[in-house]
């Protein structure tokens, strides 16, 4: 690329940088480690014709400064807000960046590929509902529940899915969302237990709690700490702990306060 057109225009360079940051944002948002994000962006900048690049990233922000061969420097910052988990997107973004590094495409092609990554397929709501039920049931068995507990847990898992989708619709922040959905699930469990005398509510609700527990945030934050990104690791770890507390608080309030259960 750079051999054919040695001096890219400023707008071209900015266009490349926006694409590169799009990839970085996708990685960061969906559960990649900080080191992977920084490393990927650095390589992408190098292969897209910049002579040097500095990347700094924390879980909520990416700052990218690159120097073009002509001497001009460009900086772009990307604030990352909503975070989710889509490991498939992480892996695709990773594949794309490998491809771009091996053979840098022209800008239009690059933009098209990034766009194609953004609107890729994911599981339909019905399939997701099924996944929630499946996970709830299997973890209720895993923690010592019987078949009845698994069935009840699948039903309250469906309630949890509805709570999470509802929370997404009204754009609840993630901590409140955890508290709210675990509270609603606990409420469903109380009702279920009233109808199913043989079921043990703790086994049912643990199956649901496993769905909310920030396992990804925990492992990613630990990996960040090992990689030397202590600030990001601690931020992620804190977030995981706070989310776990929110989940515990949400279900506790309902089970203890409303249900009158000795939990």
């Amino acid at each position: 690329m750079e051999e054919q057109t040695p001096a890219l225009s400023r707008t071209m360079q900015e266009g490349f940088m926006t694409c590169i940051l799009d990839i970085g944002e996708m990685l960061l948002k969906n559960g990649a480690e900080i080191m992977r994000v920084e490393d990927t962006l650095f390589r992408l900048c190098k292969s897209c014709g910049f002579s040097s690049a500095e990347v700094f990233s924390i879980p909520s922000c990416i700052i990218l400064t690159a120097r073009a061969p002509g001497g001009a420097t460009i900086t772009q910052t990307r604030r990352v807000r909503a975070r989710g988990t889509d490991l498939d997107l992480v892996s695709r973004a990773n594949d794309l960046s490998r491809k771009v590094c091996a053979c840098p495409p022209p800008l239009e092609e690059f933009q098209a590929e990034v766009k194609a990554l953004k609107n890729k397929k994911s599981y339909t709501p019905k399939q997701q509902l099924f996944i929630y039920c499946l996970i709830s049931a299997s973890f209720s068995v895993f923690f010592g529940g019987n078949a009845l507990d698994a069935l009840a847990s699948a039903i309250s898992g469906a309630v949890l899915y509805m709570a999470v989708s509802l929370g997404g619709l009204i754009r609840l922040n993630s901590i409140l969302m955890n508290a709210f959905s675990s509270a609603l699930t606990a409420f469903a469990v109380i009702i279920l237990c009233a109808f199913l005398p043989g079921a043990s509510h703790d086994k049912i609700i643990i199956g649901n709690i496993m769905l909310l527990i920030p396992g990804l945030a925990l492992t990613t934050s630990l990996r960040d700490i090992i990689n030397g990104d202590t600030i990001s690791g601690l931020a992620g770890f804190c977030e995981a702990v706070i989310k776990a507390l929110a989940i515990a608080a949400g279900s506790a309030v309902v089970l203890y306060g409303l249900g009158g259960y000795s939990i």
Partner: peptide, 21 residues
């Protein structure tokens, strides 16, 4: 594939959800 992609789902059963509860 990135390591995280495989590691995260695999390690989930070890996470102490029961103890938390």
């Amino acid at each position: 594939t990135p390591v995280t992609v495989l590691m995260v789902p695999m390690i989930i059963p070890l996470i102490p959800g029961g103890t938390l509860y």
